[in-house]
Write a protein that binds this DNA or RNA. Sequence first.
DNA 1: GAACTTTATGCAAACGTTTGCAATTATTTT
DNA 2: AAAATAATTGCAAACGTTTGCATAAAGTTC
Lengths: 335, 335
Amino acid sequence: MNNKQLKLADLAKLAGVSTSTVSRALNDNPLIKQETRDKLKQLAKQHNFSLNTAASRLRSQKTNVVAVIINFDSGTEQSINDPFLLKVVGEINLALNKQGLELLLSNSFMAGDDWANYFINSRRADGIIVVGQGKDPTNIEAAAAAGVPLVVWGDPKTPSNYPIVGSDNFVGGRLATEHLLATGAKNILFLGDPGHAEIGERYRGYLAAINSAKAIPHVVSIDITSGAAYQGINQLLVAKGLCFDGIMACSDMVALGAMKALKERYISIPNDVALVGFDDIAMADISHPSLSSIKQNTQQASVILVEKLLAQLQGHFAESQVIEIELVNRQSSKR
Amino acid sequence: MNNKQLKLADLAKLAGVSTSTVSRALNDNPLIKQETRDKLKQLAKQHNFSLNTAASRLRSQKTNVVAVIINFDSGTEQSINDPFLLKVVGEINLALNKQGLELLLSNSFMAGDDWANYFINSRRADGIIVVGQGKDPTNIEAAAAAGVPLVVWGDPKTPSNYPIVGSDNFVGGRLATEHLLATGAKNILFLGDPGHAEIGERYRGYLAAINSAKAIPHVVSIDITSGAAYQGINQLLVAKGLCFDGIMACSDMVALGAMKALKERYISIPNDVALVGFDDIAMADISHPSLSSIKQNTQQASVILVEKLLAQLQGHFAESQVIEIELVNRQSSKR
DNA sequence: GAACTTTATGCAAACGTTTGCAATTATTTT
DNA sequence: AAAATAATTGCAAACGTTTGCATAAAGTTC
């Protein structure tokens, strides 16, 4: 360990210039001669110097930090373990890093209800990315109303005064259902809770497809977990027997839970029941039969989320944006 | 939005006391009379006050932030999408929050090689939690040598001058293998790369069990991904046919990849091949057949990781610690 | 070569907390 | 009742940057 932590003033003394010059040089300020800049940067590297971000943030009123809030509904069992949400967080992390921003990971437990206060007024972060709309938009709306730079991963069609980036859930739901219909399924279950914004859109897409095929809709409303799906399908089978021949699941985890329940009863997938999920997580490809799914382009979405946040940080306005979505056709719906 | 962001001085003026008193009151300093403390806290809440963390950190030389580094090997495809690692991160987040600490999520891309410098000297964080040892401990050792408060999730038996918390991988490997032997398997494959610290221990546990049963070890060394496992097993089957009747996989994702390859060829699990994974991720329970697995108690581990980091922050020494591990017996190895 | 513009650097004042020490007031001891 | 002690609070100096403004040096124009 170094005897003493170097500060800007020390570096300045070493170089025989003022602290202002060093500060500007390290920030690549064009006021400083290129030659001087290079020299000072090299000196900094050589002496293993690193800026005190606390001081820098205090003075410049900027943190270069973005808070990412994983927004669970309190009523649900969907948790920090949800692979899809975590995948999104991972990709947001990458997208932020590429812009030189850092990621403060948070959740409702830590942040409380007043996000503007907790993150922005306290200078913990410059902006917020919310992953998941949840059922209750109160916190998000309050933060947006307080003028916080904010973007949300969710359903972009939800009317809002803040930008929402997300997949075209309606089209996704319709695509999946049309695909199931095309395989010959007549009685297609929607498996998921339409009360949730994104899932609601998927449900409406499902309804649209069902209606135009003059089929009969049927919803099994469950929590967004594989366990709930497993139980839900099991109970349905016990109560009414095999009364369906297709399932449109609101997520892959839910689909996989349903798949397990079916397989345990030796109901063939896709022959007896065709199945389509949503999200296209890694497991969709690895499950057996592999799971057809609506693929969300989370990587592209993450980049756009960060762009829109950046735009707001620079005082511009940003609109919601729909990300293209596509059906990945695998074994679970092939017949 | 408020007209102006309140600061400590404003609050002090409002209350008719000095800033020192307000500062101490909000930090629950016993120097301040309880009555005054309560009054000031209420006033702060009422006015929606929140401390400027930048200023606070600058002055107090403490951030209350912990950097979490997901430590991938550059050579591997194991990614931010790995559900197990993300689960660990999620639980570390919870454990940190319970101690009032925040989580700065990072990766090698952002942090570079000199972690001490990037995180600690720059006052971005007070300490570091590294998730995953990786194959190359250079960065970790350098940081530890620089005196950085640091804990690692990994293989606790690895000799180190920093605390490593993790499961008893040797016992886990042995348990899994003994279990497979007990089901009657004779030719048990180890599926995974023993060059990786934790997996190496699992491999040695496997070897111990194999040797004491006088069976013959056989390793299929692959990258830690389900895709690699799928390909690896496929290739082996093509090249040599079904030359094994048990697989000890180094992770659940790997096991699930192998499972898919087997199922595609109508090789019965567990009858033809018994299978045990490692990690006990959510999918283990949902796959069909459900996957026997060695369960790592990530929640307990996360709490301990945070405790040990806290201890170091308070200047104490912390040792590596082994977390109990247990076999979860499911269908994939039942016969 | 004087007057002006351009380029490069330095001075010093913030940014908003925390904290050692001093000062004041209340309580106890002699 | 004076002296000593304990309980509260305030003063003012940090913490290490960034940045508006002033200044100095160099280059340009007439």
